[in-house]
Design a protein around this nucleic acid. Structure first.
Lengths: 338, 338
DNA sequence: AACCATTTAGGAAACGGTTGCAAAATTATT
DNA sequence: AATAATTTTGCAACCGTTTCCTAAATGGTT
């Protein structure tokens, strides 16, 4: 039923090689035969079979994309960039959802079977060992938003989370808060760990320290909301909260308002990621922005580079992040801070 | 470098067929050879090559998934269900992002090249002609949340949008609103068109009519917010608003509050989809729920059924939807309505 | 017109599996 | 123990491409 190369070759009166070449970028065919082939191909309605091609070329143009948090709208922004970026380069995303069973072996197998050219790990909560499992299996892996440990051999594209935390700490103090606390994502997430570390440093540099640390169960509204409720029920003493993600900040903000707490006067709130939601009128949470677009683009480019030259070593590309001031921070006091 | 079937066969001292059979569900191999093969395979670290297998079997186990609105968090809920549902059945989603250039031909080509077994069109805004383009190309297509036109030959799994609209109309009246208006998604979306139709009918049945209709540019917070701002600036006369989606309702709600309008007393608000966000404390928008989980599961099952029996005709599976009462509708007046 | 340098074309062997078929091995039946 | 029925095995062809290699065609020089 399906039209193949041979059908086109027969109809055009040329060899199969000739047909193959017309559909291969940069192959040598005369203008005359190309015309003939193209004509026959459109008449027959031929579409090249990339599965067969992949078998012959040992390249699938498939990129495995691994995700594990579908509760965070930020993922959607990443998806949008990732999918459009990949397909603009003639690559196709093959999705793996890790929610539920987080077994590296299983997902490695899934993707190896399809011989994906590379894997993009789109998660800040997975340990570096996860990415290494892919490398070990011979799959080039790029850990998007991962931690750039110095001893490992896997590519990372993201930000310096410690720096992000430091900026957060510095900013809260500058905006006149005295007892800043930390509400991270899950304690096991490297992003949370690193942001906390930087946060502590940022506060110490200014002679302060973190009031307390608390971890939400995951990066979601609900987790942020519940965590804040707990903090308030426990009557914890704090006047500012650095949250591990905008969605957590959003949950915390809602809980705070429900308890009649005035943001930003009684409580300063800082999120992370500068998601679209944080910009919404009526929400307007101040946040630490990472250049998501640059990061995703860079990751895709890096993937291509590695494919072109597999001997290339691992590389970390870390971008700077910056404070975005919105409604959940009180204005910097006229004292000569800064 | 990569281990192949032949390597395993050689090591195990059996034929290539024997190895193939051990890795094929339900093929005939003796326990003895299976053991030998498995042993050799694990020692060598063999992983079957699904690309090669696909070429031989004419089945890729790939399902094309097409999306076009990454601004709506509802999509994330769908993704979660879709990806986990597919991989539970040993199918893999191959993503196509339609945002930007919405060219059917192009995406048909992309997916035909990879010989996906079927296509799931996850969008309520695309015309039915889009789905038909896939069918014409020989790709079984399931239009998730699509319109079930009676004359077409493509599968649809979703809800009866007219019925959803009718429930909305009925509910607004029952809750005591007098001048209900309609704020849909883009006017070109079949879901919006059908919901409007049902809405009008629902109102008429109770002796009312729609105050006016307005269409947001797309299914997004921003579009809902902007639309509401326009309506308010124009001093439109309405006391209830049926929105085409929760995210639009959310934008509208925010705009209304900014203008000091009291919801639900001065303005009733009704969303659609019962998204997680609509349940958030502090948001709590009343909404029309569709059984998303059932719908997605059903779509996947239908895909499998069609694959098993390609001669099967098109089929529409429409689910009922229902009102979820939350904070944006005033309580039903003690008058004897209902 | 004869020669050489370049392009272009075709044949055939991969790529890594599956599967129909016939032969071999096993098990069941008498 | 011989035979029949059944299961297991291996061979070889095939799935739809690419690509190396050699041969043919083309074009440019003298």
């Amino acid at each position: 039923m399906a039209i193949t190369l041979s059908d086109v070759a027969a109809k055009a009166g040329v060899s199969r090689s000739a047909v193959s070449r017309t559909f291969t970028e940069g192959a040598s065919v005369s203008e005359k035969t190309r015309k003939k082939v193209l004509k026959a191909a459109t008449e027959l309605g031929y579409t090249p079979n990339y599965i067969a091609r992949s078998l012959a070329t040992q390249r699938t143009q498939l990129i495995g994309v691994i995700c594990n948090n579908f509760k965070n709208p930020y993922l959607l922004e990443i998806f949008e960039l990732l999918t459009s970026g990949l397909q603009a380069r003639d690559l196709r995303p093959l999705l793996v959802n890790l929610t539920g069973g987080t077994d590296p072996e299983e997902s490695v197998d899934q993707l190896t079977r399809y011989r994906v050219d590379a894997v993009i790990l789109a998660s800040s909560t997975l340990p570096t060992s996860f990415a290494q499992a892919f490398e070990k299996a011979g799959l080039p892996c790029i850990h998007l938003f991962g931690r750039a440990a110095d001893n490992n051999n896997v590519c990372v594209v993201g930000i310096n989370n410690e720096m992000g935390g430091e900026i957060a700490g510095k900013s809260l103090i500058e905006h006149g808060y005295q007892k800043p606390a930390f509400l991270g994502g899950p304690a096991s997430a490297t992003s949370t760990q690193d942001r906390l570390k930087g946060f502590e440093r940022g506060l110490q540099n200014r002679g302060h320290s973190v009031a307390f640390t608390h971890f939400a169960d995951n990066y979601s509204f609900e987790a942020g909301y519940d965590a804040m409720k707990t903090l308030l029920a426990d009557r914890r003493d704090f006047d500012a909260l650095f949250c591990g993600d905008d969605i957590i900040a959003m949950g915390a903000l809602t809980a705070a308002r429900e308890n009649g707490i005035c943001v930003p006067d009684e409580l300063g709130l800082l999120g992370f990621n500068d998601t679209e939601m944080s910009r919404w009128p009526g929400v307007s949470v101040s946040t630490i922005a990472q250049p998501t677009e640059d990061i995703v683009r860079s990751a895709i480019e890096l993937a291509q580079t590695i494919l072109a030259d597999p001997s290339r070593g691992a590389e970390a590309r870390l971008y700077a992040c910056k404070l975005i001031e919105r409604g959940t921070l009180k204005p910097i006091s006229d004292a000569k801070s800064r």
